[in-house]
Design a protein around this nucleic acid. Structure first.
Length: 886
DNA sequence: GGTGTCACG
DNA sequence: ACGTACGTGACACCA
């Protein structure tokens, strides 16, 4: 039995546009409407399994309806540019998916649909018309149903004549009479003024049609009669306008609409081009009935996998010289604690899977030697993680030269989905299963049978292998080859070494500190409960809000999505009203220290080493910075004394050694001075002036000795603001002043630092032209929203354009310094070890006899990391623990 | 899993 | 008029 689906393309893309949140691809094209459309399309295909499909579009602006009525569809909002640019995208996608589309000059989509539906109906074929427009109801019949989109777009509601009867008490053909009487504001169809749906329905239930209503006006009375009589012509014309023309001369046959499922070869690339990754993944692996549980549908990808056992291991050993890609499959988020499931060794024509246990047998020794030989180049995806996992299993992995994840990060640092599966889509390669489908997620994680497992891992490894040349080309085109090979790749080795080394935490001291915090927490809790006269969960913002704003009736300063805001900023403002507030602030401070820095840190101490081994992530921060996890050692307290004490438990791992820390002084502002070439800023740093005081002098026009603490504080905030991509609103919030005052500060600042102002203008312009910004070392960040018509999105992108080159260049610089530092330590055969990086600070542990040399070596190397037009300065300090190194 | 809060640069 | 400072990660709630 034939089943036709006819889609009103214009209507659905409109609905989709307004139903979907904004969405742009990396090229800055809006794709939300196409995305919504596609989602709906896939759902339709799944649910209705059509044999024929066609999407109709309006063609041109003037249709035959305008011949009689110029104002038809007048008064409509102009189609937003964000939508109009999506029409060609949709049409191209449909072509790729293998779905017929049709438009005919002078006709609207519904006329085409009406004509086809009529023919199909007469032939007895089942038809589903999909639209967001109720006008389509007039087409309903025994064989023709109308699918009307609901609130969103993916949900559709089916109307057969019975449902229309139920809803309006009308036959489908009477829908045009309804429109004739009540009109349609969105199409500028007038109808009869003052007649809405209710009146129109009443009249139609009585008389049946517009003509009959007009013939019987004598039976009506009052205003109604008058209006209908004076607007009789309008009603007739409106009915005509609402009538779908069903006699269009079509030059398209039913055969051209045959739908045999999506055309895999072209659908993949078309979806990939739009960067619809989730759809790509969904398409490849769903809706294919008949799979056993745990089995994953795999589209054709020529991968043969050999599962290694004792008998055939020698084959693999012989092939080792040909291996191009290595994949170590791990389980667990924290690579220091990850289990290793197995390893794949890939060359173009063969993939060997080795279960990890087998790798630890004597027979596998040559394989281990291969893994540990630094002169043998290794390529793969996330080698950093593999290295750590192997390390804790006693294998000293070496020789990495190309990491696909790291390359993917440089090519688009804002892409959060960098899985091999996502990269396969990006490069239009045969898709591979997503991890969740193979292993299950969370508690349901289960390693599948070796057959499925080895096949999946081999496919992954094969994909990695074919991605490498594509990335090499792209890195070349984007001038990031050197950044990749000379900076990020070597850095990944250094980070892994720092992480393996770890930093010692004095456990019993930390526990002692925990006891002190515990006592304070207890005391504060008691006091707070007694003042509040009730016990409640102090850690629950909801319950706390209830106490403060309902029970105690304190003024509400700020609201969150879910209720009252109780953050520190709010509590500071409430402090004068009630004694309880200060106590809550203290409680919050100590509770944070206790849960995150005492209990949290204790949990992370390795029983094996007595140290914490953080994991630096090199592929998450959009600006090029590192991030730190398990535990995060980049946010250990320092600003408040209570918290700063935590630093005392970070100690050297060998007796007699010291902790030495060196931090860059004002790197970001120095970078800004260099990039902007601002004369005043360069001058200030050349003479190593206190930059905030200098800013205060210039902005407020006073002498150095007349800068008071308030002026310096304001100047400091302005400097921060500049680095963040300043806005008067942001500055006013930070300084607690009015927006006008903030704007005045900014104006004065730019008056003095005109080079900075020019930079801000230029960088935004550059971003708008290129679609991206870069750092000094050519690190790149795309800003697809830089030309958005939405003010917020655009402003955000503009601030990012100002900030990223600054923050990113600072990140480049310290990464360079780390590479130079590691080189120097090894050249000079020093025993000192680099342990931590905190954005602008490096932390070492240093033996007694190297203190002197390190005190001068570290700042020297940091200072020379990258020559700028202003000096770079690093300040060094040391002591028996991290607290004392201040 | 999302939200609020807070620690750092 | 619009309403956010830039970049992260961890913890505790709560549905």
């Amino acid at each position: 039995m034939d089943k036709l689906i006819l889609i009103d393309g214009n209507s659905i893309i409109y609905r989709a546009f307004f139903a979907m949140p904004p969405l742009t691809n990396t090229k800055g094209l809006h794709t939300n409407a196409v995305y919504g459309f596609t989602n709906m399309l896939l759902r339709l295909i799944e649910d209705y399994k059509p044999t024929h499909m066609m999407v109709a579009f309006d063609a041109g602006k003037i249709t035959f309806r305008h011949e009689g009525y110029q104002e038809y569809k007048g008064g409509r909002e102009k189609t937003p540019r964000e939508l109009s640019e999506q029409f060609p995208l949709l049409k191209e996608l449909l072509q790729g998916l293998g779905i017929a589309q049709y438009e005919l000059s002078g006709y609207e989509a519904d006329d085409i649909i009406g004509t086809i539906a009529k023919e199909a109906d007469q032939a007895g074929r089942q038809v589903l018309v999909v639209s967001g427009d109720k006008d389509m109801f007039q087409l309903a019949s025994e064989h023709v149903q109308i699918g009307l989109t609901r609130k969103g777009v993916t949900e559709i509601e089916i109307y057969a004549p019975e449902q229309i009867q139920e809803r309006y008490g009308l036959e489908p053909h009477q829908i045009i009479d309804l429109k004739g009487l009540m009109g349609d504001a969105s199409d500028n169809i007038p109808g009869i003024p003052g007649v809405g749906e209710k009146t129109a329905l009443k009249l139609l239930h009585q008389y049946g049609s517009v003509e009959e209503v007009l013939a019987n006006t004598h039976e009506l009375k009052g205003k109604m009669k008058e209006k209908i009589e004076t607007h009789a012509d309008d009603a007739i014309m409106s009915k005509k306008l609402a009538t779908i023309y069903r006699e269009v001369q079509l030059d398209k046959s039913l055969d051209e609409m045959i739908f045999n499922g999506l055309v895999q070869e072209t659908a993949g690339p078309a979806l990939a081009k739009l960067e619809f990754k989730s759809l790509l993944e969904r398409l490849s692996f769903s809706g294919e009935a008949g799979l056993e549980e745990g089995e994953v549908a795999q589209p054709a990808l020529n991968v043969e996998v050999t599962v290694t056992d004792k008998e055939n291991m020698d084959e693999l050993i012989e092939r080792l010289p040909n291996i191009k890609v290595l994949h170590v499959e791990t389980y667990g988020d924290n690579p220091h604690r990850a289990e290793i499931i197995g390893v794949v060794f890939s060359s173009e024509d063969r993939h060997d899977y080795v279960p990890f246990d087998l790798l630890l047998t004597d027979q596998a020794a040559p394989i281990l030697n291969w893994l540990q030989d630094p002169s043998i180049p290794k390529r793969g995806y996330d080698l950093h993680r593999m290295d750590l996992a192997l390390h804790w299993h006693g294998i000293a992995f070496a020789g990495v030269i190309f990491d696909v994840q790291l390359a993917a990060y440089l090519l688009d640092p804002t892409e959060s989905n960098q899985t091999v599966s996502a990269l396969a889509s990006k490069y239009g390669l045969d898709s591979i299963a997503i991890e969740e489908d193979v292993f299950g997620k969370g508690a349901k994680y289960k390693i599948p049978d070796v057959e499925i497992l080895s096949n999946h891992l081999a496919r992954k490894s094969a994909t990695v292998l074919s991605i490498i040349p594509k990335q090499e080309k792209e890195l070349d085109e984007t001038k990031m080859k050197s950044l990749f090979h000379d900076l990020e790749m070597p850095l990944s080795r250094i980070l892994a070494d720092m992480e393996k080394q770890g930093i010692e935490v004095h456990m019993s001291d930390l526990q002692e500190l925990g006891k002190e915090f515990e006592a304070q927490i207890h005391r504060l809790e008691e006091e707070i409960y007694s003042i509040a006269d009730t016990k409640f969960n102090l850690n629950s913002p909801k319950q706390l809000g209830e106490i403060l704003f309902v029970k105690l009736g304190l003024p509400v300063v700020k609201k969150t999505k879910t209720g009252f805001s109780t953050d520190a900023e709010v509590l500071e403002k409430l402090a004068p009203y009630h004694d309880i507030v200060q106590l809550i602030l203290q409680y919050r401070t100590i509770a944070k220290l206790q849960s995150t820095y005492v209990e949290g840190l204790l949990k992370e101490i390795s029983p094996k080493t007595g140290k914490v081994h953080t994991y630096y992530r090199q592929t998450v921060a959009a600006t090029g910075r590192l991030s730190s996890q398990f535990p995060n050692l980049q946010n250990i307290p320092i600003r408040l004394e209570e918290g700063r004490k935590i630093r005392k438990v970070f100690v050297p791992s060998e007796p007699g050694w010291s902790i030495l820390a060196a931090d860059y002084s004002q790197v970001e502002l120095r970078v800004l001075a260099h990039i902007s070439q601002d004369k005043g800023l360069i001058e200030a740093f050349t003479h190593d002036m206190d930059i905030h005081t200098k800013t205060a002098m210039d902005v407020f026009g006073v002498k150095a000795e007349d800068v008071d603490s308030n002026m310096r504080r304001a100047a400091k905030a302005v400097n921060f603001g500049i680095v963040y991509g300043i806005s008067d609103y942001g500055l006013s919030q930070n300084l607690n002043i009015t927006r006008k005052e903030a704007a005045k500060f900014i104006e004065q600042y730019f008056e003095v630092f005109q080079g900075v102002q020019q930079y801000m203008v230029d960088i935004v312009k550059e971003a708008k032209e290129n679609g991206y910004v870069t750092t000094l070392l050519e690190r790149r960040r795309y800003l697809p929203e830089i030309n958005a018509s939405n003010f917020n999105l655009r402003s955000f992108a503009e601030r990012t354009a100002m900030n990223t080159p600054i923050q990113g260049t600072a990140a480049d610089i310290i990464k360079l310094a780390m590479i130079h530092m590691e080189q120097a330590l090894s050249d000079k055969k020093l025993k000192s070890r680099m342990l931590l990086q905190v954005h602008d600070e490096l932390v070492f542990e240093v033996p007694e006899d190297e203190l002197e040399i390190m005190k001068s070596l570290v700042p020297e190397i940091m200072g020379k990391a990258l020559p700028l037009d202003v000096p770079l300065k690093a300040e060094v300090s040391y002591g028996g623990n991290w607290y004392e190194a201040k």
